[in-house]
Amino acid sequence: MNAHGLWIALATLLHREVGRFLRIWMQTLLPPVITMSIYFVVFGSLLGSRIQRIDGFSYIEFIVPGLVMMSVITNSFSNVASSFFNARFQRSVEELQVAPLPDWIMVAGYVGGGMLRGILVGFLVLLVSLAFHPVRFHNLPIVLAFLVLTSLVFALAGFSNALIARRFDDISIVPTFILTPLTYFGGVFYSISLLPPFWRGLSRLNPILYMVNGFRFGFLGASDIPTWIGLATLIGLAAGLVALNLGMLARGVGLRT
């Protein structure tokens, strides 16, 4: 297939993925927005007023970037993990396998869909946050770079998860037992400068810390971690996950016996 044909195939896959999460917006877009609104009310307005300023910012101002990032992470991941595993489960993934597509189109189509959902949910959460505090951008290109790269990394991770999962349970293990703890300990609600040295050092092993802090830097101009380390971590993770997914597809993992 020529480049035009490949573009049509990619656009077809993206169109279906986006159409899917928009069609079931009550399950895909609304819940994260409601959950984050509750975080804003409880942690931002009710408790936040009693918490002292962090790095010179009010608590609600401090947690908004982290909560937006949390939404991006979970939605990018779960969109790809559930959609692709469901396609495997229903066997509709065979529609892609019999078609003359290189493996990277399959990855790009599903991952693109996951990224778009993550970014859209992040944008909606940011909109809701305006009801609690005005948003300011210290460095918009950094915000956009972290937004796109984080959604890419977690959409790719969702694809890997869906590829190796054998049961529906397997696609809920990662969000429940890995993503949620890492996100909560990734500096969404606090600055690691508040932690004792041991926990501060341990936190530095958490990749989500770099994403949250880089994203926060784009908004506030303050971060626990140098921004370039965050960007380099994201680019490294994305490259590694692309290689992992393409390698698994080439070996037929999860799809070909």
Binding site: G5, A9, T12, A87, S92, E95, P100
Partner: peptide, 20 residues
């Protein structure tokens, strides 16, 4: 092996798209 939540016409158009 098609997506049972899609409409018949969309299943065909989707497959055609995958062939460019």
């Amino acid at each position: 092996n098609f997506n049972v939540f899609e409409k018949a016409l969309e299943i065909l158009v989707f497959q055609a798209g995958l062939y460019g």
